[in-house]
Write a protein that binds this DNA or RNA. Structure first.
Lengths: 215, 215
DNA sequence: CCTACCGATCGGTAGG
DNA sequence: CCTACCGATCGGTAGG
């Protein structure tokens, strides 16, 4: 084992990742300069480069750390002995908790993944797909009639839509907290599942919604 | 009135906006260079500047045009004599139609609005709020018991979450078209509304979900 | 005089 | 750890 880093090294490093995630979330990866990151961290630019190889590595680690956190969460809930519907509800509650706690990293994961090089992008997207698959499986256990139907994946994605979108508009100081919204999302989702019609068999019947009318 | 532009001017201009929207959607506003925009349009950079004042103006017009389109759509549906629930369903169908048709502009609207200067950003966000308010009103007419409750706005945003999120993962060549998904979204939403519990009265009861267990 | 458009290069600033 | 500075590339515009 090589000689250790300074004691505060990892702490400092984690703080840098957090500050960088904040900046990337607000300004986007490309529009954020390493000077800004250094300034936000209270260190000089050369010091910053002591903790991170380059700007790109910041992006890679923020995205990978966050998606790994989501996978850990899913794994924890999967081993719990729970009725299927309760498992889905717990997954929703835990996800919204993490989203609220790591709003910046989550925004980076959803918006800046396009700046990752193919190999890194694949790693992150594969991990994300694993999370979605776990949700889809839990949903199918709670609603066996949906299992292996063409709607299993789409309704899972609609659930993610509700959860993910919340954090593009939800203000941390808002009236409704994530803890209050989680059961609302779960109720809306399960209540809605019961009402969803099973697949349209014909291939894209080109449903025409009325065009504008002329008087 | 000044002498007119060349006949193809407006056509060319619209094509430039469309190409720029594609590039901005795929690479982000900041990471896209005017050289790329010019290349994608098959014109030289000086020619490009003949059609647009500068890069920023591209962003402003893409965002404003798209949000204006959404407002036009809402206004059209609002004047139709329809039962409340049908109005919401038509709004959903029309929105997903526009999203599918203008996927690039929609992505720019949701992801690159942060690069707008305050005054322009306010204009766009105000227009967006108008669209959301129209949805919220239509929803409240379909479900009067929800009107003016703390949940009216949140459930409206959850609906937008489902619609908007679809287009961050939906492939144009996928199995399910937007026309097939629109009724699924509507069914899920209305079915779910019936199941949603009305507000938690106590202020943020800090629902604790279990932490990880140690064996 | 106008428009439309080229090749070449400007001043400033990015990551490093 | 800082000042200083690089090679490369940005958005935008000069002359012709």
């Amino acid at each position: 084992m090589p000689r250790g880093r300074a004691p505060g090294y990892n702490t400092q490093r984690e703080q840098i990742l957090a500050r960088a995630a904040d900046l990337f979330a607000r300004q986007g990866y490309t529009a954020t300069s390493m000077n800004q990151v250094a300034l936000a961290c209270g260190v000089s630019k050369p010091s910053l480069y002591h903790y991170v190889r380059d700007k790109y590595q910041l992006l890679v680690e923020i995205a990978q750390d966050h998606v790994a956190r989501l996978n850990t969460l899913v794994a924890e809930v999967q081993v719990m002995p729970l009725p299927p519907a309760d498992r889905v509800r717990l997954l929703i509650a835990r996800f919204m908790e993490v989203y609220a706690d790591a709003q910046a990293a989550h925004r980076v994961l959803t918006e800046d993944v396009k700046f990752l090089e193919p190999a890194d992008q694949k790693r992150v997207l594969d991990a994300q797909r694993q999370v979605v698959a776990a949700f889809a499986q839990a949903i199918a256990e709670a609603r066996p009639d949906l299992h292996a139907t063409p709607l299993q994946k789409p309704v899972t994605m609609l659930l993610f839509g509700m959860m993910n979108w919340m954090f593009t508009w939800h203000q941390p100081g808002g009236k409704l907290t994530h803890a209050q919204m989680a059961p609302v999302v779960a109720d809306l989702f399960f209540g809605g599942l019961a009402a969803v019609q099973l697949p349209v068999p014909q291939p894209a019947p080109a449903i025409k919604t009325p065009q504008r009318r002329r008087a």
